[in-house]
Amino acid sequence: MTTATQTSRIAQLPPAVKAVTLPALLIVVWQIWAMTLPETSPAPAPAKVVQSFIELTASGDLVWSTLQSLGRVLAGFCVALVLGLSLGVLMGASRAVRENLDPIIESFRPIAPMAILPIAILWFGTGTPAALTIVAYAAFFPLLVNTVYGVSRVDRQLVRAAQTMGVNRLRTIATVIVPAAVPSVLLGSRLAMGVAWTAIIAAELAVGAKSGGGTSGGIGQMMFVFYAYSIDLNGIVVCMIVVGVIALMIDRLFRVAEHRLLPWRN
């Protein structure tokens, strides 16, 4: 009886409360565990992480590094967007193009962005161009695949309907095929942005490893410095949290955009 009432009371809590309850509990447990350790222990603790966050924010390092990484992601994403959309529309519209390019695309797709890092570094050095290449490569495939899907799956009946209304071919592409493909392209963009953000952190970590730090910047680089030079685990945790929060914000931003741009979907 009591158990049943308790369960239902928990079920009645607002979703936001439910969402933070468990993480809050874990943080408390983590803090208690950390307080049992000697003062000199390098193990991260919630209180120290917060302190580190405040310091890093106050110095401007964290904000600057984050902006640098975001800037690279945006630039790489734009390169991927231009390439992915144009090739995607071509492949989606022409079966011949699709059938010829598909084997090449599909054999590159499983190659993780990190796997092309050695080549990127050899060609472009350890700076921004190499990181950009990784990001663009990572973001390219979700954009391409979803654009191809969107364009090739346009309802044929809608194209036929336009033809029976005296709409010419070029106008049909602009007024039927492109709008019909927009949802797929937006989905591809959201996925691409997600993997681009993942890839930039990894790329900055690796690029930093070779250059010895300090030259390329970005939040991944910052993590690498904390790991290899100052051995500051609290700083690394701060970076991890920032990376996670930003990924979440990017995803939410795209979802809002999808909602705004596609009011005709339920």
């Binding site: 309802d155 009946q157 809608l158 036929r160 309907a161 029976t164 209304m165 039927v176 709008p179 005709w264």
Partner: peptide
């Protein structure tokens, strides 16, 4: 051509 208008079985309305 537009002089022969078609009304399709599934209506073929533009969802957007």
């Amino acid at each position: 051509g537009a002089e022969r208008g078609v009304m399709f079985q599934d209506y073929a309305l533009f969802p957007w």
